[in-house]
């Protein structure tokens, strides 16, 4: 577009695109054409696969282990070393009441070493997020000391090729994503800043989303399960 020299034929333009030799403006113009002109994609594929032969010339270098740690923390949040839900998989299928009771006792036990902690929210805040027909049931318990929600899926799973995404909805506000639920039954999520204060009035919901979760910031698929947070 803004090229000062003659524009080459498409087959060579595609090579320049793959090599990243085009200016940002030329790149944008080429990408706009790519969406419309399918023959261009053939050229791009040709160059991308042929040039990929040069990948063999790149030496492998092991990255430092901190890179892996930081990456996993950025994507999935900090790893909880002592998550009682991780030991709770055998609870699947047990009644809701017994899960809550065990959770409550576990929380009590966790608090024993620190009996003089300043008073936090005393009540246990829990939510059972469930589908009407109970085909999906997820239990959430709030841990005030870490500002985490411990999540345990006790029934149901994501549809093949889809994921379950957890949302928090404050009264009168738009849903805020708490993240995609992993394949495993248990996980733990951090509540966003400011949300813990209004926790007792939150609604939690789970929606059906494409892999990686909604990319619009709002649920895009069906809302499968809903639950109110309540004090126990």
């Amino acid at each position: 577009m803004t090229s000062t020299s003659d524009t080459p034929e498409d087959g060579i333009l595609a090579a320049e695109y793959v090599l990243r030799l085009l200016s940002p403006a030329e790149e944008a113009a080429f990408e706009a054409r790519l969406t419309l002109e399918t023959h261009l994609m053939d050229y791009v594929a040709f160059w991308a696969s042929r040039l990929s032969g040069l990948n063999d010339e790149i030496a492998e270098t092991t990255p430092p282990s901190r890179t892996r740690r930081q990456l996993m923390a950025r994507l999935f949040g900090p790893i909880e070393p002592l998550s009682f839900w991780q030991r709770a998989s055998l609870w699947q299928g047990l009644s809701f009441a017994s899960i809550v009771l065990s959770g409550f006792l576990a929380l009590q036990m966790l608090q024993i070493p620190e009996p003089t902690l300043p008073a936090g929210p005393k009540a246990l805040l829990i939510s059972e997020i469930s589908a009407e027909d109970q085909s999906l049931r997820v239990l959430a318990i709030y841990k005030a000391n870490t500002n985490h929600l411990e999540i345990a899926r006790t029934a149901g799973q994501a549809a093949p090729g889809r994921v379950l995404e957890l949302w928090a909805i404050a009264e009168g506000a738009a849903p805020v994503s708490l993240g995609v639920l992993p394949e495993g039954a248990n996980t733990s999520v951090i509540l966003p800043e400011g949300m813990s204060a209004q926790l007792a009035s939150l609604t939690l919901a789970i929606s059906d989303e494409p892999p990686g979760g909604s990319n619009t910031g709002a649920p895009t698929g069906a809302v499968l399960a809903v639950g109110q947070v309540s004090e126990l």
């Binding site: 994609m41 053939d42 791009v44 991308a48 032969g53 063999d56």
Partner: peptide, 30 residues
């Protein structure tokens, strides 16, 4: 150009080109 982090190849749609054996490609381009 900070905002010009376009997706390039990665975001592109289906391509008719089937994946090629990498070893053959390496020999050919070299």
């Amino acid at each position: 150009n900070l905002d010009d982090v376009s997706n390039h190849l990665v975001a592109s749609g289906p391509t008719p080109e089937q994946s090629v054996v990498a070893a053959g490609e390496a020999a050919r381009i070299t």
